[in-house]
Nucleic acid binder design. Sequence first.
DNA 1: TTGAAAGCGCTAACAC
DNA 2: GTGTTAGCGCTTTCAA
Lengths: 348, 348
Amino acid sequence: MKTYTIKRIAELAGVSKGTVDRVLHKRGKVSAKALDKVSKVLKEIDYKPNLLARSLKNTRTYHICVVLPDSTIDSFWKPCNDGIQEAIDEFASFGIFIEPFLFDPREVDSFKKVNAKVLTMVPDAVLIAPLFHKETVQIVHKYKNLNTVISKFNNPVEIENTQNFVGQDLYRSGRVAGNLMDAIRKKESGIGIIHIDEDIENAIYIKEKERGFRDYFKEKEKSYQIETYNLKEDELKVKLNGILSANKGVKSIFVTTSKIHRVAQYIHDRNLDDVKLIGYDLLPENIDFLLKKKIRFLIHQNPRKQVYLGIKFLVDFFLFDKKIPAKSLLPIDIISSENIASYIDESK
Amino acid sequence: MKTYTIKRIAELAGVSKGTVDRVLHKRGKVSAKALDKVSKVLKEIDYKPNLLARSLKNTRTYHICVVLPDSTIDSFWKPCNDGIQEAIDEFASFGIFIEPFLFDPREVDSFKKVNAKVLTMVPDAVLIAPLFHKETVQIVHKYKNLNTVISKFNNPVEIENTQNFVGQDLYRSGRVAGNLMDAIRKKESGIGIIHIDEDIENAIYIKEKERGFRDYFKEKEKSYQIETYNLKEDELKVKLNGILSANKGVKSIFVTTSKIHRVAQYIHDRNLDDVKLIGYDLLPENIDFLLKKKIRFLIHQNPRKQVYLGIKFLVDFFLFDKKIPAKSLLPIDIISSENIASYIDESK
DNA sequence: TTGAAAGCGCTAACAC
DNA sequence: GTGTTAGCGCTTTCAA
């Protein structure tokens, strides 16, 4: 149970450490004879370079900037702050500096301005929540010119020159919602899909959830009545009055965003206990309604883990030369009032 | 954006590296004056020791033994092999040697024999699946004498002198099953809880699942008929004939172990499509029946992650002096035919 | 083409 | 008490 070192290999092969290193890294400038001797030894043993020593040599520090929405404007992003903080604490000792930069998710200009600022810092990597497609494409170009590594999370925009995406399969998550709705809905009740406050940019992705939801029922060949509603937050009450009016028979509602608590509040205020709700994300308000049984299931997109993982990939790349996966899709967690605690504990 | 080193601190304080090191580690033998100078500098800056350098100094290797059931005897444990392999690959470069040791989960003697063998190796740590309570207590004592760090996973036995437990809250998972069953069961159908092939040792823990399941319904004040059946695998068919005979009306079944596929096979063979099944674990057979809609939900205990995390805690402790949490409970994942893929991908 | 040597940050042994 | 020094495994420079 001993571990081989370059020094040991050099001894075994009867050459110097330098030569072994050249062979290992295929740097050339090695005679056929020396190459042969070293290769022979390497074939015998299972050499694993000591990654600690390797990256210690690289005494430089790395700067990673995270560009994401301000959670005081949209609280969906709040868990990301914890994920970033966790990464900061964990990786500081390895010479990794992580800095968050917040933009206003309602304003394209804010997104552009923040990225412009980050650009001036010439970071080694950026991890972006690419809420705005067109602008992200432009900005990615500029980062590319700086040799900045670019990763994305949360929004599945396909962009060239980026290294990595961490997020969830939205279509799939819509199917999961359909499956759950199928289990809990009352016979003969109508089904409503509600999009709340989604602008055009985001809409493309949100629609994926709807598509998955509808496909699920389509494949089951259950031709239920499924209506889609696009609502603005300020007109919510009025519209819900219409949607949930008794004669329409809509009793099962799938809300495609974290704003489901707004609908839950509505049915809570009116004691509409026969309405079944399924939505997204573990906002405190959503958890509250989940425990009060106003929301039946939530799908957990785990933004905290998304951002943490996005950073972790970059760190492993810089420090240990690990490959960054092009795409990593997190599990689609189903949350009910009974297992919610186990998910909250997890993130400490 | 620069990172402080001991050398730099020594310069700033006007002392030598050695003195700084003594202050940092409170090794004493430092004059009040020197202590003061160094402390002052340390207060100014945010010094984070370079963990890579620190553990590089410690050139020793660590030996971790994992004691778990042979997955060819009970395939529940199969994912653990992957988790262990992942850990082996990931940590080999850091001088960590991980070795699995398999026992026959049906034989106490096998458990004892394997542990005896591991003892002779005097490992730095063991991670045990403590299937047998009494014997584990005895063996833990012996490991303790060797100064071996002892962690456990999967079975929540409370034992003194152990560092860590990684697993799932079984009571809670029973509640989750109850909650799900409540959602999918047909009105008026009877509910059955089936324990398959559990001996006395394991029974204590399995009973926790039953308790959670029953408590859920109790709290809802739904006084359904819930029957419990303890079945041996070889008498399964005969007994199921009785349990599922039409006149008893049992249409909803909670199987408390990964052996749920045996029940699924039964209802599949007989086309009993109105029977709702909920059970545990992502065995290939279970996944198969999940996709065939014979099993409605599975609860994922994630044995792979359990063992990986158990090892990871030990590694972080040895290499980076991180504290080992006394208990870490994994999330209780709810798996359906629609989100199963996202969980399988996760483990690559 | 090769070997020797320096040095990354930290620790610990050893002089003074 | 204190400073100096060697060395962990690896990379890289430089002289031969």
